[in-house]
Design a protein around this nucleic acid. Structure first.
Lengths: 150, 150
DNA sequence: CACGTGGAGTTCCCTAAGGGAACTCCAATT
DNA sequence: AATTGGAGTTCCCTTAGGGAACTCCACGTG
């Protein structure tokens, strides 16, 4: 299908979607994050079609979210998160927090996070980078920024 | 294309994607959040095909993220966020924070957030819900949870 | 009362993207 | 020389997205 491209919209959500908004991309990012860094590993773990995996990986590399690098003298490559990609993992952590609260069934969450700083099993919470108080949908006003559309 | 459904994976990211992972869904959620609550408004704002908009709205309603309710005695409806949906906006705010840092071009971010609590233009930061310290990709260990796959 | 209006979808056709399996390429290893 | 295994490519088929036209229906308007 001729998918509309989001990258050109003056919207930060659309721009983020342009990077990881396609189906599978967040799961690929997760895999790379948790240590499935090679083509075959990711393909086997996700059950994704090889064609699509190739496309997604190239796109994520182009976007500077992951880096493709050889790990052997044979033509073997692994993918690693860049700084830009590591910060994108924030997004995954928030997804996990939401799903654990609203979608985890009888069994509870499949994965737990233990926070290094306090040693406790915990989850992320959104805070204001300026004052440190909670910052959620109802706690803010939206203002036009410098890059606002004409 | 016969898209693989993510909802059945024992993965909270996949489960979240099952709700808002399809193209356009996060942008629809954003529109509803910022006040484009009617079919025609959202369609015009996003330029999305009416067919797809219908599908996405139904799905979001089914998932309990938005609610469809009449606003007239004529057959007119608007969509409003549920509690579950309001908490999903966290995800959008994190997307915005990431794109504003990594993708905003010359012009800077298109939208700014002013935090009610402190009155400052700010952005979200991820903190540990338990101890309040920063909590990002490198600050945690992953542990199998009760709902882990067999 | 017939007609027009506008919101909210439906329907239809066409193209492009995803799934899946088979195939290729290539540097080691045996 | 033949085999192996990772890393993609290629091909066919199905299905989802884009876009425009069409439907439905409860008002207002003349």
């Amino acid at each position: 299908m001729q998918r509309t491209k989001f990258g050109e919209m003056a919207c930060s959500i659309a721009r983020t979607l342009d990077v990881i908004g396609e189906p599978w991309s967040p799961l690929i990012l997760r895999d790379v994050w948790v240590g499935f860094t090679r083509f075959e590993q990711i393909q086997a773990d996700l059950g994704i079609s090889r064609k699509v995996l190739t496309e997604r990986l190239s796109h994520l590399v182009e976007c500077g979210v992951i880096e493709r690098r050889p790990y052997d003298r044979r033509p073997r490559y692994e993918y690693v998160l860049t700084e830009k990609g590591i910060e994108l993992v924030d997004l995954l952590m928030v997804m996990v927090g939401w799903a654990d609260k609203w979608l985890a069934g009888e069994d509870g969450p499949p994965v737990l996070y233990r926070h290094h700083a306090c040693g406790e099993v915990s989850r992320v919470d959104l805070r204001c980078a300026h004052c440190g108080e909670p910052m959620h949908a109802g706690d803010i006003d939206l203002l036009p920024g410098p890059g606002a559309a004409v």
